[in-house]
Design a protein around this nucleic acid. Structure first.
Length: 894
RNA sequence: AGGCGCGUAGCUCAGCGGGAGAGCGCUUCCCUGACGCGGAAGAAGUCGGCGGUUCGAAACCGCCCGCGCCUACCA
C-alpha cells in the first residue's frame, strides 16, 4: 500500500493488490457498530433462523469450525440479503468434562487437586477461567466474518438456560421419563465419572483371550471359560451356559469353584450365551459387565464390585486388593498358570472402549445413576423425520438416523464431576424422601424436615445442548423470539454429532415445544488433512485456520471451504487449494480495478429500460450468462449445494466475465463512439454490481470493500437485495453467437501459437464460413476478433479459394487460414491435421453407428436423436474440410 | 457382525443415464494500457476389476479387489 505503483491510473482507485488484513478489521468493526447482524422481527416478513452449534468454551477455532461456520454464514448472509427476518444465534457450550479437565490440569501444575480446594472454590475457578479465556473462540468466529447477532449470545450455563434445564428435568421426572437406579454404566477411572454409551469410543485392539478352568466342586473335572479381562473373575458370581447346549445337558454338578477366590458359584442356564463361542461357558461378573449384569438379574445372582473408582482392585479382590487393574491382570494370569488352571492364551482382536475425553480405557461398572427413558421421545423424532417435517441433507443420513433411533437405549445423564448443571434433586436426611424441583426446596415435601441435601452429580453436557434451539429463544417463557424463530430454518453441523446432539434436540424439541426444532438438517463432512487423516493435535497435522487467514485472507479461506463442501464426502484440505482461491479473490479485485477506470462518472443501467435485443453481442451474451449464473447460484444455495454455488461463481467471474467480456468490451470502452462507450460502461457497471452481490455471502470482506468503492451513494452491501432472475436477459441465440465468435478467436490464437508466430508479428487471416448467418455475426464482430487475436487484416468469406501456404484451423464447418510469412512447415501441419482427422473420424464413427442402430432410433428420445443427427452433420462437414486441407498440403509437398 | 461412503488426468476432487471436467502441477509462448496472485496455446485419463440391465453406463444393479468411517452386549 505504501508504494504507489506507477502503473496506477488517476481516480479514486483501489490499491493494486487486495490488502485483506486492514480491510477485514475495518469492515467487521463497522458491521458490529452499525448492528448489521441484529435480528429483525418485522411482521409480514418470512423468518430465517439458525442456532449455532455452540463451540466448547475451551475451544480454539479449528478447520472444522471454519467449515461449519462459513457455511452457516453463507446461508445467513444469503437469506438476509433476500429480505428475511434473519437470526443467527451464537453461543458456547460449557463442555462439562472437557472444561473440567482443562482447569484440573491447571491445578495440577500448581500441585493441587480439585479435592484439595473443594467443590465451591473449584467451580469459582472454572468460571474465572471461562471469563478470562472463554471468549477466545468468539473472537475467532468474528475473524471468520460470522454475522451472528452477538447481543443474543448465550452460554449453556447462563441463568436462562439453567432455568430451562431445571424445568425440563423436573417435568421429565414428573412424567416418569427420568429415573434413578443401579445399572452398569461406562466408568472412566481417570475422569472419575460415568459416561453415556455414545461417549465411549471403541477401538479395535490386539488383546488376549484367556481360557480358564473352573473346577467342579467335587474336584473331578472342570468347565473352561474364556475372558479378555481375567482380573474381573475375582467378581464372578456364576458361570452361564446355554440351556440348549448338549455339552452341558448332563453336568455332574451345578456349581464350580471360582479359582483364586475359592468361592463356590452356581452354573446357570441363559440363552444369552453363544454356544459357538469358545467352550460355550461364560463367566458371569455382574458388577463389571453389562450382559453379565442382565444375566444376574434374570437369575437373582449377587453382584460383587472388585474395583474402585480409580481402577484399583478393592478389598473384595482378596489378596489382589490395592493393585492396579492391569497389574492385577498379570498377577491373576500368573497365579492361574501356577495352579495349572490356565488352559490356553490366544491372540484376540476385540473392541476396547475408551473415554472420548481422555482416552483412558473405560471400565463397565455397577453404579447408581440417573437415566432418561428415551424410547417414547425417540418415537416422535422418528415420526417427524419420516413425515418430512425435518429433512436431513444429504438424505442418506436419514437411514443412519433411523437405525440409531430404533435401537436407542436409555441415556445415562448423571456425571460425577463438578462443572455442569447440578441435578435438581434433594434427599431429606430425616425421612429419605427424594425431592425433584425446579426451585431449591426449603423443606421436605413429606416430613417437612429442613435437612435437605442436593444430589452432587451434574448433568451430561449434551443434556443442556439438547435444549439449545428453544432454550436460547427464551423458553420456558412464551417469547416473541420463539414465535418468530422456532422452529429454526436449518441446523448446519458435522455428521459426527448426529446422535450426540441432533437426535437429542429432535427429541427434546418435539417433547417440549410440540414441534420440530429445525426444518432442515445439513450435515457436512469432516475436514481431514491432505492424507485423509482426521486432524488432531496429537497427530500434529492440524491446520490452524487463524494462520491460514493471516496468510491468505479470510475470504480465501471461506471460498475454499464453500467450494469444498460437496455433500457426503470428507474434505482433504491442502494449502495449495487455499492459495488457488486467494488468486481468485485477487482476480475479482483486479477486475474491479479495471472497471473503476471506466465507470467512475457512470451509472448502472436501469434494468427496466434495457432492451437486450438492441445491444451489441458482447452485452447480450454477458447479460444472458449473468442471468444464468444468478439462477444457478440461487438454486444451489437453496439446496445447500455450496460447492456448486462456489464453482458457478468461479467459472463465471473468471472465465467468462474476466477472460472474455472484459477483453471484448475494451473495444467499446477505448473506442471513440460516445454512445457505444456509454452503453459499455453501463452494462459493465450493472453486471459488476450483480457479481459482487452474488459473491458477498461467500466472500463478505472483499465485496464490502469493493461495494464501498463503487461510484454512487452506498451503504453496506449486507442489506442490498440479492440478485434475482431477469428473464428478459435470457438469450440462447446470443450465447450461440458468442460461442461462434469465441471459437474463431480460439482458432486464430491456436494457429499463432502452434506455428510460432510471434505475438507482435503482423498477421493477415482469412475465414471461410459457408453459412451466411454465421458469417454475418463474424463480420459484425470482426473488430473484436482483430483486437483479441492481434490480427491486422481479416477477410470473411462465405466461399472462395483457400489461400496457399497458410496454416489452418477447422472449427465445425468454418475454416480459418493464416498465411505464413515464410514457408509453411508442411510436415507439421499435416501431423496436426492427421491427429485432428483421427479424432473427428472416431467421433463421427460413434455417432453414425448410433444412427445406424434401429433400436436407438426407435427408443431414444427425439431430441437426442436430433442432436446426434446435428452432430453427424457438423462432424462430417469438419472431416470433409480436414480431408480437403490434407489433400492440398499433400499436393504442396509434391 | 451389520451399516455407510470412497476408488475419475501426476496431486486434490466435481460429475452420477446421452459428446470425459475443474483447481493445482506440467510444456511452449507473451513485461498486449485490471491482474505474473496475470494472459494465450497445449500435453495428459481402457472414470479400481469382472459380469448384468439398457438403443446407450464413469454414472443404475450384482459380485470381487483396495481404502476409510460409523454403529454393535460373542465373553
Amino acid at each position: 500500500m505504501e508504494n504507489k505503483s506507477e502503473t496506477q491510473a488517476p481516480g479514486p482507485l483501489l490499491a493494486k493488490a487486495y490488502e485483506f488484513s486492514a480491510v477485514e478489521k475495518k469492515w467487521y468493526a463497522y458491521w458490529e457498530e452499525q448492528k448489521k447482524f441484529a435480528a429483525t422481527m418485522d411482521d409480514g416478513k418470512a423468518s430465517f433462523s439458525i442456532v449455532i452449534p455452540p463451540p466448547n468454551v475451551t475451544g480454539v477455532l479449528h478447520v472444522g469450525h471454519a467449515l461449519n461456520n462459513t457455511l452457516q454464514d453463507v446461508m445467513v448472509r444469503f437469506r438476509r440479503m433476500q429480505g428475511y427476518n434473519t437470526l443467527w444465534l451464537p453461543g458456547t457450550d460449557h463442555a462439562g468434562i472437557a472444561t473440567q479437565n482443562v482447569v484440573e490440569r491447571q491445578l495440577a501444575a500448581e500441585n493441587v487437586s480439585r479435592h484439595d480446594i473443594g467443590r465451591k472454590k473449584f467451580i469459582d475457578r472454572v468460571w474465572q477461567w471461562k471469563e478470562e479465556s472463554g471468549g477466545q473462540i468468539i473472537n475467532q468466529l468474528k475473524r471468520l466474518g460470522c454475522s451472528c447477532d452477538w447481543d443474543r449470545e448465550r452460554f449453556t450455563m447462563d441463568e436462562g438456560l439453567s432455568r430451562a434445564v431445571r424445568e425440563v428435568f423436573t417435568r421429565l421426572y414428573g412424567e416418569g421419563l427420568i429415573y434413578r437406579g443401579d445399572y452398569i454404566i461406562n466408568w472412566c477411572p481417570r475422569c472419575h465419572t460415568a459416561l453415556a454409551d455414545l461417549e465411549v469410543e471403541h477401538e479395535a485392539t490386539d488383546g488376549k483371550l484367556y481360557n480358564i478352568r473352573y473346577p467342579f466342586t467335587s474336584g473331578g473335572g472342570y468347565l473352561v471359560v474364556a475372558t479378555t479381562r481375567p482380573e474381573t473373575m475375582l467378581g464372578d458370581t456364576a458361570v452361564a451356559v446355554h440351556p440348549a447346549d448338549e455339552r452341558y445337558n448332563s453336568l455332574p454338578e451345578k456349581a464350580v469353584v471360582l479359582p483364586l477366590m475359592n468361592r463356590t458359584i452356581p452354573i446357570v442356564f441363559d440363552t444369552h450365551v453363544e454356544k459357538e463361542f469358545g467352550t460355550g461357558a461364560l463367566k458371569v461378573t455382574p458388577a463389571h459387565d453389562l450382559n453379565d449384569f442382565e444375566i444376574a438379574r434374570r437369575h437373582n445372582l449377587p453382584s460383587l464390585k472388585v474395583m474402585d473408582d480409580s481402577g484399583i482392585m478393592n478389598e473384595e479382590a482378596g489378596s489382589y486388593a490395592g493393585m492396579d487393574r492391569y497389574v492385577c491382570r498379570r498377577k491373576v494370569v500368573e497365579d492361574l498358570e501356577k495352579q495349572g488352571l490356565l488352559e490356553k492364551i490366544e491372540d484376540y482382536q476385540h473392541g476396547v472402549g475408551h473415554c472420548y475425553r481422555c482416552r483412558t480405557v473405560v471400565e463397565p461398572s455397577l453404579s447408581k445413576q440417573w437415566f432418561v427413558s428415551v424410547k417414547p421421545l425417540a418415537e416422535k423424532a422418528i415420526a417427524a423425520v419420516k413425515a418430512g417435517q425435518t429433512k436431513i441433507h444429504p438424505k442418506t443420513w436419514e437411514n443412519t438416523f433411523f437405525d440409531w433411533m430404533y435401537n436407542i437405549r436409555d441415556w445415562c445423564i448423571s456425571r460425577q464431576i463438578w462443572w455442569g448443571h447440578q441435578i435438581p434433586a434433594w434427599t431429606c436426611e430425616d425421612c429419605g424422601e427424594l425431592i425433584v424441583s425446579n426451585n431449591d426446596p426449603v423443606e421436605c415435601t413429606k416430613c417437612k424436615g429442613s435437612k435437605l441435601v442436593q444430589e452432587t452429580d451434574v448433568l451430561d453436557t449434551w443434556f443442556s445442548s439438547a435444549l439449545w434451539p428453544f432454550s436460547t429463544l427464551g423458553w420456558p417463557d412464551d417469547t416473541k423470539e420463539l414465535a418468530f424463530f422456532y422452529p429454526t430454518s436449518v441446523l448446519i453441523t458435522s455428521f459426527d454429532i448426529l446422535f450426540f446432539w441432533v437426535a437429542r434436540m429432535m427429541m427434546m424439541g418435539l417433547h417440549f415445544m410440540q414441534e420440530i426444532p429445525f426444518r432442515d438438517v445439513y450435515l457436512h463432512a469432516l475436514v481431514r488433512d491432505a492424507d485423509g487423516q482426521k486432524m488432531s493435535k496429537s497427530k500434529g497435522n492440524v491446520m490452524d485456520p487463524l494462520l491460514v487467514m493471516d496468510k491468505y485472507g479470510t475470504d480465501a479461506l471461506r471460498f475454499t471451504m464453500t467450494a469444498f463442501a460437496a455433500q457426503g464426502r470428507d474434505i482433504r484440505l491442502s494449502e495449495d487449494r487455499i492459495e488457488g482461491y486467494r488468486h481468485f479473490i485477487n482476480k475479482i479485485w483486479n477486475a474491479v480495478r479495471f472497471s473503476l477506470l471506466h465507470i467512475q462518472d457512470s451509472q448502472p443501467c436501469v434494468v427496466a429500460d434495457l432492451e437486450p435485443a438492441s445491444l451489441a453481442l458482447e452485452h447480450q451474451w454477458i447479460l444472458s450468462r449473468t442471468n444464468k449464473t444468478v439462477l444457478e447460484v440461487q438454486r444451489a444455495l437453496n439446496e445447500y449445494r455450496f460447492n456448486d454455488a462456489a464453482h458457478a461463481l468461479y467459472q463465471f467471474v473468471w472465465h467468462e466475465f474476466c477472460d472474455w467480456y472484459l477483453e471484448w468490451v475494451k473495444g467499446d470502452l477505448y473506442g471513440d463512439n460516445q454512445e457505444v462507450k456509454e452503453t459499455g460502461r453501463g452494462i459493465l457497471f450493472t453486471v459488476l454490481e450483480i457479481i459482487i452481490k452474488l459473491l458477498h455471502p461467500i466472500t463478505p470482506f472483499v465485496t464490502e470493500e469493493i461495494w464501498s468503492a463503487l461510484p454512487g451513494d452506498r451503504s453496506s452491501i449486507m442489506t442490498e437485495p440479492y440478485p434475482q432472475e431477469i428473464a428478459a436477459w435470457d438469450n440462447p441465440a446470443a450465447e450461440d453467437a458468442a460461442d461462434l465468435f469465441m471459437g474463431v478467436v480460439t482458432g486464430l490464437r491456436n494457429i499463432r501459437s502452434e506455428t510460432g508466430i510471434h505475438p507482435s508479428a503482423h498477421v493477415r487471416a482469412t475465414i471461410i464460413c459457408p453459412q451466411k448467418g454465421k458469417s454475418e455475426i463474424l463480420e459484425e464482430n470482426s473488430k473484436a476478433i482483430l483486437a483479441l487475436t492481434r490480427v491486422e487484416e481479416l477477410q470473411i468469406l462465405t466461399e472462395g479459394r483457400r489461400p496457399k501456404g497458410a496454416a489452418s484451423y477447422i472449427f465445425n464447418e468454418i475454416e480459418i487460414f493464416v498465411p505464413l510469412a515464410g514457408l509453411v512447415d508442411v510436415a507439421q501441419e499435416l501431423a496436426k491435421l492427421e491427429k485432428e482427422q483421427a479424432k473427428v473420424a472416431t467421433q463421427l464413427k460413434k455417432v453414425e453407428s448410433k444412427l445406424g442402430n434401429s433400436k436407438f432410433l426407435a427408443k431414444a428420445p427425439a431430441e437426442v436423436v436430433a442432436g446426434e443427427r446435428q452432430k453427424q452433420e457438423s462432424l462430417s462437414a469438419k472431416l470433409a474440410k480436414i480431408n480437403e486441407s490434407m489433400e492440398r498440403l499433400q499436393h504442396l509437398k509434391e
